[in-house]
């Protein structure tokens, strides 16, 4: 009993706000509101940028996780600490930091602009960058954990069959840790989808270009509460649906 009461209170605390969303939703005007182009634009942009950010995180994060899990080099603990910094950093601070580096006058941004004519801030690419920055630690930590838990003797077996390092990694290690990579990717995608602070700071709030769902919700809240509720419910439904589908396909399997 002593644990049950706070446990139930905790559950209620987590579920009640979601119930509030459902109860207060303007169900009668819902279909019309959902069909508005602005809503669909924001949703499409969110799904697209979160997916691209996840792809960036996979390409860069899996090798980084491998390095942390398998390679032995001085300062590995420092590197791991650095990787987890975005986890504890307030996203707005992350956005400011990104501006200082990739902004038009930033450390790298200035050079990117003059050499290649590439500008990242206040663009869709900037949204992807901001989301990837915030979400990558989730992927790296999940994949590193999976790699540490994987039985390295399978890699030895592959070596005795003539497989070099790269082949062993792609043909044996990756399939072995696929559930971990999938779980990390899902976490990463969910985090990217909900990203707000870094995005609005680094990429701004331009409808159709950088205005993702969380930004649209925030903006709508100031003018039309009902619209904000609709957008929130939609975001909730999309993320829950996709997470549930992926979970069945990958994580538990």
């Amino acid at each position: 009993m002593g644990l049950l009461v706070p446990a139930l209170a905790g559950l209620l605390f987590l579920v009640l706000p979601l119930v509030g969303l459902v109860v207060r939703a303007p169900w009668s005007t819902m279909p019309a509101r959902l069909a508005e182009p602005a809503v669909l634009d924001a949703l499409w942009l969110s799904v697209r940028t979160a997916t691209m950010a996840t792809a960036v995180c996979l390409v860069l994060g899996v090798p980084l996780a491998w390095l942390l899990a398998r390679a032995d080099f001085p300062g590995r603990r420092v590197v791991r600490a650095l990787v987890t910094v975005p986890l504890v950093l307030p996203p707005v601070v992350g956005g400011v930091a990104l501006l200082l580096v990739f902004g038009r006058r930033g450390l790298i941004g200035e050079w990117l602009d003059s050499a290649f004519g590439i500008t990242l801030p206040f663009t869709t690419a900037g949204v992807v960058l901001a989301e990837a920055f915030v979400a990558m630690p989730f992927l790296v930590i999940a994949v590193e954990g999976a790699l540490r838990g994987a039985d390295t003797r399978y890699e030895e077996a592959a070596a005795t069959l003539g497989a070099g390092r790269w082949t062993t990694f792609t043909r044996v290690t990756l399939p072995l840790v696929a559930p971990g990579v999938a779980a990390g990717g899902v976490l990463c995608w969910a985090r990217a989808l909900g990203e707000f602070g870094a995005t609005i700071t680094f990429a701004g709030n331009f409808p159709g270009r950088t205005q993702t769902m969380p930004l649209a919700v925030y903006l709508a809240l100031e003018t039309d509460v009902q619209a904000a509720i609709v957008l929130s419910l939609l975001l909730l439904a999309v993320s829950v649906t996709i997470l549930a589908a992926l979970r069945d396909k990958w994580v538990s399997g």
Partner: peptide
């Protein structure tokens, strides 16, 4: 090991 020609 990958160049030894030893089966295990």
């Amino acid at each position: 090991p990958e160049k030894r020609g030893v089966g295990v």
